[in-house]
Amino acid sequence: MRISVLGSGIVGRTLAARLVDLRHRVVIGTRDPGRPHITRWLRGAGELARAGTYAEAARSASIVVNATPGTATLDALHAAGAAALAGKVLVDVANPVGDPAADPPRLRTGDRSLGEDIQATFTQTRVVKALNTVSPSVMVNPKRVPGDHVAFIAGDSRQAKTMVTGLLREFGWSPHAIVDLGDITGARSMEMLFPLRQRLSRSLGHTNFNLGILHA
Rank of each mutant, 00 (worst) to 15 (best):
P104D: 10
A94R: 02
Q198C: 06
F171M: 07
R126D: 14
A120E: 14
R59I: 10
S157K: 04
S113L: 04
V11K: 02
R199F: 03
A102P: 07
A55Q: 14
L107Q: 14
H206F: 00
L107R: 13
T14Q: 04
R108W: 02
I63Y: 10
Q119V: 01
L74K: 06
K143A: 15
G44P: 01
T185E: 12
G70R: 13
I10K: 15
G147M: 02
G7E: 13
W41Q: 03
A216G: 15
I28V: 15
R197I: 01
T133F: 00
A58E: 06
A55I: 04
S157Q: 05
R144I: 02
N132S: 04
E170K: 14
H149D: 06
R31K: 04
A49K: 03
L74A: 06
V93Y: 04
T68Y: 08
G29M: 01
L214V: 11
E116P: 01
A67R: 06
A187E: 09
R13D: 02
E116S: 11
I38Q: 08
G87D: 12
T185W: 02
S60C: 10
A80C: 08
A72W: 08
G81S: 14
A79G: 05
L114P: 02
T123M: 07
P33R: 15
I118W: 13
D75W: 00
P96Y: 13
H215F: 13
R50N: 04
D111F: 07
N210I: 01
I28E: 13
H149M: 03
S113V: 03
R199K: 14
T121Y: 11
G182N: 03
T68K: 12
A120Q: 12
R59Y: 06
R188M: 12
Y54I: 09
V65M: 14
I3Q: 04
L107V: 12
A86D: 12
G7H: 11
R50T: 08
A101G: 10
T109Q: 14
S62V: 12
V20T: 13
P142N: 05
I153C: 08
A86S: 15
I28Q: 09
L200T: 11
A83R: 15
R13I: 09
D117Q: 15
S135W: 06
E191S: 10
D117L: 15
S137W: 01
G212I: 03
V11S: 05
V5P: 05
F152L: 09
V150E: 06
G115R: 06
D75E: 15
A67M: 05
T68P: 09
